[in-house]
């Protein structure tokens, strides 16, 4: 499978031209789980939003396979990076299948060689959502909704997935299950996953590379 690299070089980002962090250097490989830990307000979410192309950089660059994400159109960027944010977005009136199919908007599913419906089926199966496909997103548990949101991002066929505190609303069993399925997913599909978390046990058990964001600086803690 193709290998991809996400490279963050000398990045500074923030609001009202005031940097929350600066000099960020980070390299993320496909097929790995990379974690970012840090206290509340340390800028983890801003960094993830910058990686997803939603927060403009004050300095530096973020590139995938040597191509800067700021030069990409919204559609092209979505074929490189998918995201799941920490808010509990729960909309009624759509089924799990409809939610996952939203991810096919960018058209990248054509490179899978499957039909659109087959691709959606395959993505649902990857996250064990086949049985829930016709259920309303309002009827499923928090853990299942999180899986469905991840499946939606996977349906984009992106090389990297940004997850902002993916285990926040989950109980300890659902947390472990989610992280285990993410690890399996990364190995199986070679997608690179970058996630933020407060949960040091989860990070220690599942992350391949660990970073800490503190006082505006990012430090690499270990490589397993």
């Amino acid at each position: 499978m193709e290998k991809h690299t996400l490279n963050i070089a000398k990045v500074a980002a923030g609001y009202s031209r005031k940097p929350i962090f600066e000099g960020i250097e980070m390299s993320v490989l496909s097929g790995q789980l990379t974690s970012i830990q840090g206290r509340n307000g340390s800028g983890k979410s801003t960094l993830l939003r910058a990686i997803a192309g939603l927060t403009p950089l004050l300095h530096g660059s973020i590139s995938i396979d040597g191509r800067s994400i700021s030069e990409m159109s919204a559609v092209e960027r979505s074929t490189h990076i998918g995201a799941v944010w920490t808010d509990r977005t729960r909309i009624q009136g759509i089924t799990v299948r409809e939610l996952v199919s939203m991810g096919t908007y960018n058209g990248a599913w054509v490179k899978t060689g499957l039909s659109k419906d087959q691709h959606i089926e395959h993505t649902l199966a990857l996250l064990q959502l086949t049985a829930l496909a016709e259920k309303s997103t309002a009827e499923i548990s928090d853990g299942q909704l999180q899986q469905a949101m991840i499946a939606r991002a996977l349906a984009q066929c992106a090389h990297f997935l940004v997850l902002d505190e993916p285990t926040t609303f989950l109980d300890y069993i659902a947390k472990e299950e989610l992280m285990r399925s993410l690890k399996l997913l990364a190995r199986k599909t070679q997608i690179g996953i970058i996630f933020s978390s407060h949960d040091l046990d989860i990070i220690q058990a599942f992350a391949d590379a660990t970073y800490e964001l503190s006082e505006g600086k990012l430090t690499r803690l270990n490589t397993i």
Binding site: R49, A52, G53, L54, S73, A74, V75, R77, S78, T79, I81, G82, A83, W85, D87, T89, I91, I94, M102, G103, Y105, N106, G107, A153, Q156, V162
Partner: peptide
Amino acid sequence: LLGEQYAGTMGID
């Protein structure tokens, strides 16, 4: 429907 921060990562300008 998912909000702009999702739509922005799904290929929408």
